[in-house]
Amino acid sequence: MADAGREGHNSGVLSDDPRVVRPSRGHRARTWIAGFPRLLPGIAIAALAAGIAYGVNAFVPLLSALLVAIILGVLLRNTGLIPAAAEPGFAFVGRTILRLGVVLLGLRLSIPQVLELGWGVIAIIVVTVASTYAIGLGLGRLLRIEHATTVLTATGTAICGAAAVAAMSSVVRSDDEEASTDEAAATAVASVTLFGTVALLALPPLAALLSLAPNAAGVWIGAAVHEVGQVVAGAGIAASHVTDASAATALVDTAVVTKLGRVVMLAPLVALVGALETRRAQRIAAEQVSRSEADDVLAGRRVDHTRARDTSRPPIIPAFVAGFLLMVIIRSLTDLPAAFLAAADSAATILLICAMVAMGAGVRLKKLVTSGAKALGLGAILGVVAAIISLLGTIMLV
């Protein structure tokens, strides 16, 4: 399942061999349409599980629907309830549906709204995101946490929780032959959901204890809490302690826009990491070929210089990231109807929940249990790092 869901990582690599016949776009489209019925069983199961996750979140708002969907996917896989006929559909949901959901996320963002926060708040956002991500990478190496798990946990904590993990999982590569990117993503989603919930409960009383003004409290909560929904909840708790109704409303609005300012950084980060990951994979592959050739020489075997070396170059921006940016531009430059934006937001949420089911279905529970402790520790540390850095910035600049 995990391999099938990730086969697209290499599907776009063009061979340098002139003997390779590349199918036309029209042929690929006809092939995809003809094969679509094979996807329906997996899509149906993922949609059903997503509906259950959505319902659970409606009754228990503190339980993220994305996390519940991941758990349901894990249970389906590890209890043997996914039939073989559903595998193609799960692979489709875990890749194509995931990316479509990320694209629609762009309609949540309006650049003018973010700029209205002022350059001081923007500086807090940039420094918090960059510092949290960089420290996450360094700590992950220090603790010897698997590469993909480190990148995804750092991304989810720095940017926007599970949605950021989902976006980054499309470009990051696991360096553990016994693990998959899906398993790393499941661990990261669990981490950012858990510690984002801790943050939304802890930061409002701390803001009151520190006597932060409503605007400053909104900036801090927006810059430090992980998920957009968690930011709304945390800001609502903080606003409940503000006696001035207009100041309370401004606190919530400031927190949400500050959070969306962090989300804006998702696209450039995914594009950068995607390019670095492809080059990293090419370097590792070249090293493996070189070692194999050296082994042939030492063993007295004929060296096979025809072994494939991947010389392809990744696109500057992955297509789904370009789509995300296009949606941001459309939202920023046009006055879209509120009903349309609400529908697009709901569609993005539903698509991402479905994708989380497929992602969870790529997880081997035994491996997750044995490897998740360090990753949860990393998530806890990064949550504290993000809170401290954003608080210092808020005190100095807001």
Results as ranks from 00 to 15, higher is better:
residue 102 V to Y: 02
residue 11 S to M: 11
residue 19 R to K: 13
residue 95 R to W: 11
residue 171 V to S: 09
residue 390 S to P: 14
residue 263 V to Y: 00
residue 182 D to T: 10
residue 290 S to W: 13
residue 114 V to D: 11
residue 302 R to A: 15
residue 343 A to L: 05
residue 108 R to A: 09
residue 28 R to D: 13
residue 245 A to D: 12
residue 199 A to E: 05
residue 26 G to R: 14
residue 265 M to T: 14
residue 395 I to P: 04
residue 208 A to N: 09
residue 298 L to M: 15
residue 198 V to W: 05
residue 131 S to E: 00
residue 343 A to M: 04
residue 88 P to S: 10
residue 386 A to M: 14
residue 174 S to H: 09
residue 8 G to Y: 14
residue 122 I to S: 05
residue 383 G to N: 15
residue 133 Y to N: 07
residue 49 A to R: 03
residue 368 L to I: 08
residue 153 T to V: 15
residue 169 S to Y: 09
residue 146 E to Q: 14
residue 60 V to Q: 12
residue 205 P to R: 06
residue 87 E to P: 01
residue 98 L to G: 00
residue 365 L to K: 02
residue 154 A to W: 06
residue 233 A to F: 09
residue 26 G to Y: 10
residue 256 V to A: 07
residue 158 A to Q: 11
residue 89 G to Y: 00
residue 42 G to N: 01
residue 45 I to W: 00
residue 30 R to Y: 03
residue 164 A to H: 00
residue 266 L to M: 14
residue 62 L to P: 09
residue 380 A to W: 12
residue 198 V to D: 09
residue 193 T to N: 14
residue 303 V to L: 13
residue 280 R to F: 05
residue 116 E to H: 14
residue 391 L to A: 08
residue 56 V to I: 15
residue 9 H to C: 03
residue 196 G to D: 10
residue 2 A to L: 06
residue 301 R to Q: 15
residue 90 F to W: 01
residue 392 L to P: 01
residue 125 I to C: 10
residue 159 I to Q: 02
residue 79 T to Y: 06
residue 297 V to C: 12
residue 388 I to H: 05
residue 144 R to Q: 13
residue 23 P to W: 13
residue 58 A to V: 01
residue 209 L to S: 04
residue 258 T to A: 13
residue 1 M to S: 07
residue 51 G to C: 08
residue 217 A to V: 10
residue 139 L to C: 09
residue 178 E to F: 07
residue 147 H to W: 09
residue 65 A to P: 08
residue 235 A to L: 11
residue 273 V to P: 02
residue 166 A to C: 09
residue 42 G to Y: 00
residue 94 G to W: 06
residue 331 R to I: 10
residue 41 P to E: 01
residue 324 F to I: 09
residue 162 A to F: 05
residue 173 R to T: 08
residue 30 R to W: 00
residue 288 Q to L: 14
residue 194 L to E: 07
residue 86 A to Q: 02
residue 391 L to G: 04
residue 338 A to Y: 05
residue 95 R to L: 11
residue 262 R to M: 06
residue 305 H to F: 14
residue 327 M to I: 04
residue 375 A to G: 12
residue 38 R to D: 04
residue 70 I to H: 01
residue 116 E to G: 14
residue 118 G to I: 05
residue 359 M to I: 15
residue 164 A to T: 09
residue 124 I to W: 05
residue 365 L to E: 03
residue 93 V to S: 00
residue 14 L to W: 00
